[in-house]
């Protein structure tokens, strides 16, 4: 339970950086922190203390396998979500550089030609 709570705190830190900070790079870091908090949450769902790898071989008993193996599905999900996060992050960084090129600043309060 403590782990889940700390995980939630990490998510809130990311949200704080995203909402409160004005610097574009800090906002991007906030998004990255939130993504990692969610990935960590998914990994925690499949975590089991001193668990074994989820490969069922012929010499293994099914009942003990079920009670000791970790859940493989969240790991697969997290791998996919990390790849997606990487794509989003690359796009965000490229766009931040382009924005700096156009506006000459990283401050989100000065990038306000549109009214929202």
């Amino acid at each position: 339970m403590t782990l889940y709570f700390l995980n939630f705190v990490l998510l809130i830190i990311g949200l704080y950086a995203l909402v409160v900070k004005r610097h574009i790079v800090k906002k991007i870091l906030g998004v990255a922190i939130m993504e990692y908090a969610v990935n960590l949450f998914l990994i925690l769902l499949g975590f089991r203390k001193s668990g074994i790898a989820p490969i069922l071989t012929e010499d293994m008993d099914l009942a003990t396998f079920i009670h000791t193996a970790v859940d493989p599905l969240p790991q697969a999900l997290v791998l996919t979500s990390i790849v997606i996060g990487l794509g989003t992050l690359a796009l965000m960084v490229a766009m931040a550089i382009r924005l700096y090129e156009r506006y000459g600043t990283f401050d989100m309060d000065e990038i306000n030609r549109l009214r929202g």
Binding site: A90, V93, I97, E101
Partner: peptide, 16 residues
Amino acid sequence: SLYIVFLALAILQRVV
């Protein structure tokens, strides 16, 4: 893809 992303960002960085 990763290599090209890095290359593209390096080119953008140089422009800035």
